[in-house]
Simulated assay, not measured.
Amino acid sequence: MQEQIRLALPSKGRMEEETLDFLAGCGLRVNKTNPRQYTATIPALPGVMVLFQRSRDIPVSVAAGDVDLGVTGYDTLAESSAQDSDSVIVIHEGLGYGECSLVMAVPEEWDDTQTVADLARRAAGGTLRVATKYSNLVSRFLAEAGVEKVRVVVADGALESAPTVGYADFIADITSSGTTLRENRLRPLDGGTILNSQAILIGNRAALVSRPAVLEATRQLLEFIEAHLRARGQYMIFANMRGSSVEDIAGRIFSQTDLGGLQGPTIAPMITREGSGAWWAINLVASARQLYDAVRQIRAIGGSGVVVTPVTYIFEELPERYQRLLVALNGKE
């Protein structure tokens, strides 16, 4: 019987949607037939069972060994007691979505409070209250910044209303664009960013060390994830060119600034109805930023029939983060 590997994913909100979209883009579609169900499968990884949990619970579950792997925000790991636990290891520190920042935000009318130092002076005149879901991170930040006489009020829900309702004087919360803060007449303090966060992949150290199936599933996850991230914004360009030899075609390609490809272009003889003739097929990879210039340069050196398609994966050798993981698990370079 195949060993089951347990992967925890966020169960609610934008983080759930972005995680499912990200995995689907990696070729790791999650088969969740009922939106109310809390288990699912990944057809590309038949030994993996998906469990949906609140993001804040995932680091705790991974630390306890209740699940083997988990995707959550770095902010939830940093806030959790699991951050200081040797049982949790960060496998991939930046999945490229769920970006946000944990910031101190004060009412706009506090004109004399623009920086954290200003906040400290304001608090010295009388105890202030800060509403947050991140009591550990906020308490640590305030202590390190030398801000005293601030009482942390732990709260859930829409914290932006706390100063208006009156149960806190200012807030410390996650923001992506700052729009919600502005709509509630709040503004971030200069120097008041506590941390920057995005989605991460974490694992239970003991499971990775003692269960080869968990390590192998992690390797497969990283293969698809890193190949997908490497391919983001990359395009494959195909074109036809006339030329006397492969050296002639290569010389013309390398005379242009945006036609380098990954290691270089692929050049192959092209067979037409009239025979091989003097036609060559070329293909190379270019970034979105280079794409227009690359197409223009191919035309300039005699290219025609240019076809462009997005790249889904770029697989290199063993994934970099898998190599790092092996080093971390073995405890040596």
Rank of each mutant, 00 (worst) to 15 (best):
R187K: 11
E17G: 07
L195Q: 04
G275F: 09
I194M: 01
D156I: 00
E333D: 14
I249S: 01
E18V: 09
V138N: 00
W280C: 02
I89F: 08
T33G: 10
R324Q: 15
L195E: 06
L159Y: 06
L221G: 06
S304I: 03
F315Y: 13
K12S: 12
A217S: 13
R324C: 07
S135T: 15
R129V: 10
R296Y: 11
P319N: 09
T218C: 13
R273L: 09
Q256A: 05
L222G: 02
G25Q: 06
P188E: 00
L186T: 01
I314C: 00
M104V: 07
E148R: 15
I237S: 04
A328K: 14
L326G: 09
Q83L: 11
L45N: 03
G65V: 02
G264C: 10
T132A: 02
K133I: 03
R252S: 05
E93R: 09
I89T: 15
C26S: 05
V150R: 04
A250G: 08
L222D: 01
E274G: 14
I301P: 05
V246F: 04
A294Q: 02
I253F: 11
R296K: 13
T164F: 14
R36W: 11
G166W: 07
V209R: 15
S87N: 15
E320D: 13
D68K: 04
K149P: 01
L181S: 00
A64S: 14
T72I: 08
L215P: 10
G157P: 07
I301H: 05
Y235P: 01
T266W: 06
G178A: 04
N283C: 15
E109A: 09
R29N: 07
A286K: 03
I200G: 01
A63I: 03
T41P: 03
Q290Y: 02
D68M: 07
F224W: 12
P10G: 11
A40P: 11
A288P: 00
L284Y: 09
S197G: 06
E79H: 07
E183I: 06
S210R: 15
L221E: 05
A64P: 01
F315Q: 02
D111T: 10
T76D: 11
F170D: 07
D75Y: 03
P10H: 08
A213T: 14
I58L: 10
V60L: 11
E333T: 12
L195V: 00
G47W: 02
G178D: 03
D293H: 13
E333W: 14
E223M: 09
F315L: 03
L137V: 02
T41A: 15
F224N: 13
G305T: 06
S80P: 05
G331M: 13
K332A: 14
I194N: 02
S61I: 01
L284A: 03
V154S: 11
R182N: 10
R289S: 13
L195P: 02
A281H: 14
E148N: 14
G94F: 04
K12Y: 13
E99K: 08
R252D: 03
